[in-house]
């Protein structure tokens, strides 16, 4: 190739890499997303809360939103006893030996532990799930303030925080959940190593 022609090409590629056209090093495929693209796509929230957006909400605001956003239509006006899973404690105790419903097989089924606010070791998980997965058919449409308020409402109704406590990016990760230390760590996964030596 004519080296005189190559030179401008290299210059152009150099500029392009700065504006987000970088490709994978081995195969030269794909491109670098812009910081804005990553922000728009990245809805995963660490248990530490480091990705939590700005915003705030309280249980009182959440109670209103619970009706306005249609949550009550599926979960019941009090968050329990309707078609969708119970969100607030107070349900009947689990029957000894009764198999959990399909899809909840892996869960530790004792009274009320199917309720997310009581089972989840981190409050942030509730925020993450409301944010990505609710409400039905309008998933992902809630604003951060609304998600904070709804999370606060569920935490308050399950006696985990006070009614006037403000939930935001700083306070939410600090909420001590009742089941914070209720779970065993998963054994480290290693290729070719039995998961539970000696079983059965």
């Amino acid at each position: 190739m004519d080296s005189l022609k190559l030179l401008p090409l290299v210059t152009i590629l150099g500029i392009c890499s700065h504006i987000g056209l970088a490709q994978s090093p081995t195969y030269g495929l794909g491109r670098a997303p812009s910081a804005e693209e990553i922000r728009a796509w990245d809805i995963s929230i660490s248990p530490t809360g480091k990705e939590l957006p700005r915003g705030r909400g309280t249980a009182k605001e959440g109670e209103q939103l619970f009706r306005q956003k249609g949550c009550a239509g599926c979960h019941g006006a009090t968050g329990i006893g309707a078609r969708a899973p119970a969100l607030v404690k107070g349900g009947p105790p689990a029957e000894p030996g009764k198999a959990p419903p399909a899809g909840m097989e892996g869960m530790h089924m004792v009274p009320d532990t199917g309720i997310m606010a009581l089972r989840s070791p981190y409050a942030v998980t509730i925020w993450d799930y409301i944010s990505r997965g609710m409400p039905l058919n309008r998933e992902g449409t809630l604003k951060p303030d609304e998600v904070y308020a709804l999370t606060a409402f569920l935490l308050y109704k399950n006696d985990i925080i006070k009614e006037d406590e403000v939930m935001d990016a700083q306070t939410l990760p600090k909420v001590i959940m009742p089941n914070r230390n209720g779970f065993a760590n998963l054994p480290e996964w290693k290729h070719g190593v039995p998961r539970l030596a000696g079983y059965p």
């Binding site: 995963s44 929230i45 660490s46 248990p47 530490t48 909840m104 892996g106 869960m107 530790h108 997310m116 089972r119 989840s120 070791p121 981190y122 942030v124 998980t125 993450d128 799930y129 990505r132 997965g133 209720g182 779970f183 065993a184 760590n185 998963l186 054994p187 998961r195 539970l196 079983y199």
Partner: peptide
Amino acid sequence: RYYMTYNDYGHINPDPKVSAL
């Protein structure tokens, strides 16, 4: 770290032996 998503949190267990299975 383990991000404890909605999918994850439904599949954890208090007992290390059950957890391993």
